[in-house]
Nucleic acid binder design. Structure first.
Lengths: 110, 110
DNA sequence: AATAATACATAAGTGAATTATGTATCTAAG
DNA sequence: CTTAGATACATAATTCACTTATGTATTATT
């Protein structure tokens, strides 16, 4: 990302929405999916991602299942019903935000 | 603003663009214009605005003129040529950002 | 055999913001 | 007339989401 500042505050929204769209995923998989969707522009850092996942889990938004592949442990995350409604909220907040910014910056991308 | 987190990193862009569109403005005037354009959703705080203006001035992006109205002092800011090119850069960065986010969040607001 | 990718985790540090505080003038209300 | 709210600037203290750094361990590639 050229301007990482702008990304602030979008992490939860991104994680939740990607989980909604892709179902059950593990942390590393999320980083790769976001990298792909953003054409290399958004590279989630582990130091931000894992604490965010733990927090969302603690708040009851995500549920986890641990799976062992060979000798490697993977922690799969999926949305709880509460998490499902949070995604909607976060995404509409973001849409609202870009509409407002569009007005302030006089962008014609309606 | 419902989600003030999202606003992080947008202050410079907002200030520069509003100055570009409205010409010469003073600090308080900027807060009021942004409030108006955002329909009360973006309320710039003085603690963020004034340091940002000082920084942009120190970097040669803004030029100031002081005017005294009655006994009140107003500091008018306007863009320098350098500031003009920075606005373009910041605004395209922001447009790029919302395009990328649109892809990641699968928003159909093209 | 070494390097990169996969996969998790957490602690330390950063920096752009919020919050708090201070000064001072002008205007409207009661 | 005096008090509250708006106008107008400024800066210091604090917050907190993030980056950076570090750690462990497995698997794949060269």
């Amino acid at each position: 990302m050229h301007s990482p500042e702008l990304l602030k505050g979008t992490l939860q929204t991104i994680v939740l929405k990607v989980l909604k769209d892709n179902g059950r995923m593990y942390g590393y998989e999320i980083t790769q999916r976001v990298k792909e969707l953003s054409d290399e522009r958004i590279l989630l850092t582990e130091g931000a991602l894992y604490p965010a996942l733990h927090k969302l889990e603690a708040e009851g938004m995500l549920r986890t299942e641990t799976e062992t592949i060979g000798k490697r442990v993977r922690k799969y995350y999926s949305l709880t019903p509460q998490g499902r409604s949070l995604v909607k909220e976060r995404v509409s907040e973001f849409v609202e935000f870009i509409k407002t910014m569009g007005n302030v910056l006089q962008l014609q991308i309606k």
